[in-house]
Computed example of a mutant assay.
Amino acid sequence: MNSLPAIRHVASSSKSALGYIYLQCHVKPGASKQREGIISVSEDIIEVCVSAQAREGEANKAVREVFSDVLKCPKSDVEVVRGLKSRDKTIAISGIDVKGDEQKCISGIRDQLLNAVE
């Protein structure tokens, strides 16, 4: 696997205080509708099941919807930035204000993800 943490903050290149939260994910497409969602959160990967198939971007769209719902942010703020054709993806969440405390922000997101685990 990779050595990056599952959840990390990447500062914006602009002067804005808003950066990006990057999420390292392993996606399992074609799951049953009942299993759709976050299934586990570890130090280095977030496992996500989606019922959509891995074709024509359907699974990527479903992954964006899962994170949008769990993190209560607009789908337009959720983007697959790496791994468009892979099960291992990097998801960028924009528009999150870390308010100067990166660790507190990351642990808040981790808590939201853990609370969503079925």
Score class of each variant (00 low, 15 high):
C25P: 03
G37F: 06
S51P: 07
L84Y: 08
F67L: 06
D44S: 12
S68H: 01
S14Y: 07
Y22D: 13
Y22H: 15
K85D: 12
I38A: 05
H26P: 04
V117N: 01
E65R: 13
G83F: 15
K75N: 09
G108W: 05
V27T: 10
S86H: 11
D111E: 07
I96S: 05
Q103G: 07
Q53C: 01
R55A: 11
D88W: 10
K15H: 08
E79R: 09
G30I: 03
F67C: 03
N60T: 09
R82M: 07
G37R: 02
Q24D: 12
N60F: 04
M1V: 12
A62Q: 08
I45P: 01
Q34P: 02
V98F: 12
R55W: 10
V98I: 12
A52C: 02
D111G: 06
I38M: 09
A116P: 00
P29Q: 04
L71E: 05
I21Y: 05
I106P: 01
K15C: 00
I91V: 14
L4V: 11
G83K: 13
V80C: 07
D77H: 13
P29R: 01
L23E: 08
K28R: 11
K85P: 00
G30L: 11
Y22T: 04
A17L: 06
R110V: 13
E43C: 07
I46W: 02
A62E: 09
I93Y: 00
S3N: 14
I38D: 07
V81T: 12
S94A: 12
L113E: 02
M1F: 14
C49K: 09
T90F: 03
E65I: 15
Q34K: 15
V48I: 11
S86I: 06
R35L: 15
V63R: 02
Y22K: 12
E47M: 09
N115C: 13
K33C: 00
H26M: 12
G37A: 04
G19C: 05
Q103H: 03
D44R: 10
L113G: 01
L23I: 15
A92C: 04
V81A: 04
E58I: 03
S14M: 02
I45N: 00
A116H: 00
K104N: 13
N60V: 04
C73S: 05
C105W: 05
Q24N: 05
I38F: 08
I39C: 13
Q103R: 10
A59N: 03
Q103E: 14
S76C: 10
M1G: 15
G83R: 12
D77W: 11
E102K: 11
L113M: 08
V10L: 09
E36F: 08
I46F: 02
E118Q: 11
R87T: 07
V80N: 03
K89A: 00
K61R: 10
S12D: 10
P5F: 02
S40Q: 11
E43I: 00
C25H: 00
R35I: 05
K72Q: 15
L84D: 07
